[in-house]
Amino acid sequence: MANIITITNQKGGVGKTTTCVNLAASLAATHKRVLMIDLDPQGNATMGSGIDKHQLACSVYELLTDQAGVADAIMTDTRCGYHLIGANGDLTAAEVELLQLPRREFRLKMALQPILDEYDYILIDNPPSLNLLTVNALSASAGVIIPMQCEYYALEGISALVGTINKINQRLNPALRIEGILRTMFDPRMSLTKDVSSHLIEYFGDRVYRTVIPRNVRLAEAPSHGLPALQYDKNSRGAQAYLALAGELIRRTERQQAAAAATEQETD
């Protein structure tokens, strides 16, 4: 059964798409079966995977609006090691159309049901806003990874996002949890970075990933080549950081699965 994880933050420019693309590639490099879903009308995760968003025969838009099944929307021939459901500007129309459809908050969850056993991880990239697309992602997911920079305004933003996640948990998806907080564009030389990082660990404890993503030129360059950093320059600090993050995520997943299995045995 796939572990579905939404990567989101209502604040833009914090590394959501970079994290989604590079974590997907890193998980695939460890021989995990990975599907990445681009749920942002900008289609940056699609382009960053080497797929021309303007040439999509079938995108997440068709999937959400019942014009295609999930098998038709999945691209398996990417050069990044993971499968992809792409997005482009058509997705903007989906926000309006979804308002008229039944179970509008659960369209993505329902669409993914047939392929849950085919993947170990499904990662969802989101727009930098809380709209019906993001609600669909949160309703379909078990966990949320929140990428954030260690700066003052990020602390305010994460408080609002945690509130949103709690509301989704209470009203739409009781299984939803914060999988982890990821510190991105990390510069340990800055005192503010260290201060904010300490506040995060104090508040969120072990939900803050030990892995930090540094500022790295190779990470910034890779999308223009349509590649994750791992394929662009596997020895770069950015690529190695996302490999470490993948390892940390896998270990957490295994612990959670073991705990769930133990609880089930006790119940039986």
Rank of each mutant, 00 (worst) to 15 (best):
E95Q: 15
V60E: 08
N88C: 02
S139D: 00
L84I: 02
H83R: 06
Y121P: 07
A71Q: 11
Q100N: 09
A140Y: 02
A140I: 04
I85Q: 01
L91P: 12
K53I: 03
C58G: 09
L130M: 14
N126M: 06
L133Q: 14
A57H: 07
L108A: 10
S129A: 15
A87N: 10
L108R: 07
D52S: 10
N136V: 02
C58M: 09
V70N: 00
C58F: 04
G69H: 03
D90E: 14
S129H: 10
H54K: 13
N44E: 03
H83A: 14
P114F: 01
C80F: 03
Y61N: 05
C80T: 14
M110L: 12
L138G: 15
R103V: 06
S129I: 09
L91C: 11
R107C: 10
Q55M: 15
K53C: 05
T92K: 12
E62S: 11
A137P: 06
I115A: 04
S59G: 09
A71K: 08
G89F: 00
I124W: 02
E62G: 12
E118I: 02
Q113V: 04
N126K: 07
N44V: 00
R107F: 07
S59Y: 03
L64R: 00
L101K: 15
V135L: 10
